[in-house]
């Protein structure tokens, strides 16, 4: 296959549409990772939360023959699952990383265990006829040649991800809760001293991140695919955490970073036809994240040096003026 053909494939509308679909399962948990990170806790169990929701959604919709009941149950399961994390971390004093690791193990094994008990299969739920959420055709855009293929006809989670990114941005920077959340993450002692309930703020934040991760999970099992597969999240919860840092801990930055991971994923499928090893292509976003960590670290250090300098200058000026008095 020639490079021309591959290039054509990459710049085709279908490719861009597939990037959007693949990225959705990263954007949603990444937003969850972002808010927990900004509130000063790190949600390692995004991966497990996605898995639990993906599983619950398929099982409930499969047995009730109602897609929306499945979606609701999936969300409820995801939020409850993160409530477990929040409770153990905030009330029982478990280190959040260890609690998150435990919950990931629980999710990975627990879903397979229950899947085996309910369907007799350990690999997938394909014997169960579970539902798929509807897709949306955007009225006018769908008729525009290129744009229509890229933007229209996706499932509701794809559009939901972008709406939620907007809402999270509003929440973080334009509401009282958002200010509290960031204050808690910045300096919990200072936040407490001005009367913010740190524990409650963190608890709610973890629940919201669970909600976002659960949508990401449901997107995998009830939209992207139509069944639950063993360990189907395949590390997306961890990639989502990386997207937070790659995106500079900002909502739209995080979304862009998640899309970058999506592009690399879609690209590795395309390049498989050329003789470029897919492993090397798949490595790119991870390497970029490392570079982003470096850039982010250097920037933070410079900020710190500047702050110290300014502080010193201020103090010097003050001591001089005091001497003059």
């Amino acid at each position: 296959m020639s490079i021309n053909l591959v290039l054509k494939g990459i710049f085709s509308a279908l490719f861009l549409a597939s990037v959007l679909r693949i990225s959705t399962a990263l954007i949603l948990p990444a937003l969850g990772g972002l808010i927990t990170d900004l509130s000063g806790s790190i949600n390692i169990s995004l991966e497990g939360t996605m898995l639990v929701s993906a599983f619950t959604g398929v099982i409930v919709s499969g047995f009730s023959h109602n897609v929306w009941l499945g979606v609701l149950a999936g969300i409820a399961a995801g939020v409850l699952f993160s409530a477990l994390l929040a409770y153990f971390h905030l009330y029982l004093g478990t280190n959040i990383i260890l609690a998150g690791t435990a919950l990931n193990i629980l999710a990975s094994g627990g879903t397979v265990f229950l899947l085996f008990m309910l369907t007799g299969d350990k690999g997938s739920s394909s014997t169960l006829a579970s539902g798929v959420v509807p897709t949306v055709n955007i009225p006018i855009i769908k008729d525009i040649p290129f744009l229509g293929t890229v933007l229209s006809g996706h499932n509701i989670f794809v559009y939901g991800a972008f709406v939620l990114a907007f809402l999270i941005n509003q929440l973080l920077y334009h509401t009282k809760f958002g200010v509290h959340l960031r204050a808690v993450g910045e300096d919990p002692v200072a936040a407490t001293s001005v009367g913010i309930n740190v524990r409650k703020t963190k608890f709610v934040t973890i629940l919201v991140s669970g909600f976002l991760a659960s949508l990401g999970g449901l997107n995998l099992s009830m939209a992207y695919l139509s069944s639950f597969q063993r360990d189907m999240t395949a590390g997306r919860g961890f990639i989502a955490l990386a997207a937070v840092y790659l995106g500079g801990r900002k909502p739209w930055g995080t979304v862009l970073a998640a899309i970058l991971f999506g592009i690399a994923d879609a690209l590795s499928n395309q390049l498989g036809t050329l003789n470029i090893p897919s492993q090397l292509v798949q490595m790119i976003p991870y390497a970029i994240t490392i570079i982003a960590l470096v850039v982010y670290g250097i920037r933070n250090q410079q900020k710190l040096i500047e702050q110290t300098k300014r502080f010193q200058e201020r103090e010097l000026a003050r001591s001089k003026s005091e001497q003059q008095d």
Binding site: G93, T94, L103, I105, L106, G109, G110, F113, F116, K122
Partner: peptide, 19 residues
């Protein structure tokens, strides 16, 4: 199924680390 043990694993971590 052997995955039952992951429930036990998770509980052990949570119980041991919950201060």
């Amino acid at each position: 199924s052997r995955e039952m043990i992951s429930v036990i694993q998770a509980l052990i971590i949570l119980f041991v680390t919950a201060e």
